[in-house]
Write a protein that binds this DNA or RNA. Structure first.
Lengths: 338, 338
DNA sequence: TTGAAAGCGTTACCAA
DNA sequence: TTGGTAACGCTTTCAA
């Protein structure tokens, strides 16, 4: 049976309250007594009991505020499921969550949502930030007020967020490059369809891909790149031009959304094209099942949702400081395991 | 704030003790009173608080016994890490674990271990069973004594185990078949190196592979199969014969352990061979990194260890009956994500 | 600065 | 068949 506060109190010859104050950096303990108690606790290998703590914590429950750009974006439904799973699991330990869903990547609506949550006195905030200075400042402001912020799925440069939970975009691009090399046996003319060059993650996926084919598959050539703004209609149009302009293209690397549009262009042109894409939404799944996309590379959205909640809970209640980045797994899905 | 036993007791006009007895099927409650209490609890959407329960449960702590054939088998170190993670996490909730590690797949030493655990009055048993009738009978006996058994990593036919946690071998074989088709662009003569035809899982991996190439890649031919008993020395010998007997073979499907031995034979013969293997142990990792194995298909051993403990805990303390099979994910690892 | 005690939700035990 | 009470480990409040 593990050691408890009661045991430590007995050994130190003080009361349980004093031990609690000493170990949890609460004010009003004689420095020497505090020191002695910590010493005893460390020697005994004391670890606070989570159940006991949770029960006592129910007196002042916690709320996490969450801001996601998830409306009309099927990818995020899995992230939300992960968030729900974590907050369900932790509800018995005094945690509540409040979710605000936004559409698109608009800075001011994101700022509004953050302010709204702040007024509700949330203890922490989770968000998918737009990569903008005003958001960075808002995060800074929250952190100063001792409201930790975790970014999920997308990160923001030079901000004071506690932790980023999401994909390692560079690495997933490298995996894509490797698979392209393997599927084409090292010979291909690749057309790239990206979302937008303004999204950090999209660029990183291209960069990782490029590095790998350069190093290992010198006969895999990147022929051209087009942007589709994550939009299917535009994707069809741009991919159509891409394919007709470059008759040599026999492979497609689709970096973001707009998969269906690009694949319609492939069908139109009638050529045999090796395709690699990202994520696992309905449209993509159908295309992988039919063999028209060889592989799609996924980023564990459920896990992203689950972990961002869990990390904040552990940070606030057990003082566990997370690594600055938690990368979720890179999953290769083909026809047989999608 | 969620509803508690106290609330229900008040509404039903009885004591907390009676509510506890009524809701947890303990004896000694007037049937009508029991009925009424359950009604009230159901209407109020009562869900027992886990922290409260855990604290109370510390009075009679639980021990799970675990039997793994893990000695000299690096694959299992990850399974053990998963078990440790789960039992660490649950130690605050009154769980202890007792691990017995065995070498090889010997029925009688496995039976001995089970008896040993039984004498220590464990509340549940986790094991990697040998597929043998005597083990099946032992499991049956335990189940009758209300000691639930979960099989991990390998299952046993017609036994009364509560749940199997591990790989879907058939499906992972199908993924291998798909990848082989993609890597060879549908043209290959495949040699298969398996562990033993006596292991259900190994056969399933071959069967799944066979089905997929038959259906989707008719020009991927399975040329021959050899057994290596999961042993590197034997693997080298058999693979050597395989490759020299069939000069046409240009692809290798390595189903189980003995990867290093088989790959030494590949090096010897000097031909260019496309290789797919399973699992992620040191030897394999080096071969994938060097590009000599194109992909290795993994089965989340950590997750297997973690889940088997968690499932039993949830079953015993919260009455959550698991699905009969929990398949862990199939992970495709290539040079860039291993 | 410290101690004592109440309370979080559940279970177990003893008494009625 | 029931109720009352103590206990699990921790935090908080009030009093000293």
């Amino acid at each position: 049976m593990a050691i408890t506060i009661k045991d430590i109190a007995a050994r130190a010859g003080v009361s349980r309250g004093t031990v609690d104050r000493a170990l949890n950096n609460r004010p009003g303990v004689n420095p020497q007594v505090r020191q002695r108690i910590r010493q005893i606790a460390a020697e005994a290998g004391y670890r606070p009991n989570k159940a006991g703590r949770a029960l006592a914590a129910k007196k002042n429950p916690m709320t996490f505020g969450i801001v996601l750009n998830s409306l009309d974006n099927p990818f995020f439904s899995q992230v939300i499921k992960g968030i729900r799973a974590a907050s369900d699991e932790l509800s018995d330990f005094g945690l509540q969550t409040q979710l605000i869903e936004l559409k698109g990547y608009d800075v001011s609506s994101q700022l509004d949502a953050i302010h709204c949550l702040q007024e509700q006195n949330v203890q922490a905030i989770i968000l998918t930030p737009v990569n903008d200075d005003r958001i960075a400042r808002a995060i800074h402001f929250l952190t100063e007020k001792a409201i930790p912020v975790v970014t999920v799925n997308a990160d923001i440069e030079k901000s004071s967020r506690l932790c980023y939970v999401g994909c390692d975009y560079e690495k997933s691009g490298r995996v894509a490059g490797e698979l392209m090399g393997l599927f084409t046996q090292g010979n291909a003319h690749v057309g790239i369809v990206t979302g937008t060059v303004k999204m950090l993650g999209h660029n990183q996926r291209i960069h990782g891909f490029d590095e790998v084919v350069k190093q290992y598959y010198p006969n895999v050539m990147i022929t051209d790149i087009v942007e589709n703004n994550d939009d299917d209609a535009l994707s069809l149009e741009r991919a159509r031009v891409l394919l007709s302009t470059h008759p040599k293209i026999d492979a497609l690397y689709i970096v973001a959304a707009g998969v269906k549009g690009a694949m319609d262009a492939v069908t139109e042109c009638g050529r045999r094209i090796t395709v690699i894409s990202f994520d696992d939404v309905e449209d993509t799944r159908i295309l992988v099942r039919s063999g028209r996309i060889s592989a799609t590379i996924c980023q564990q959205p459920f896990e992203q949702g689950y972990q961002c909640v869990k990390i904040l809970y552990d940070y606030l209640t057990h003082g566990i400081t997370p690594q600055p980045r938690l990368y979720t797994g890179i999953e290769v899905k083909v026809r047989q395991n999608i």
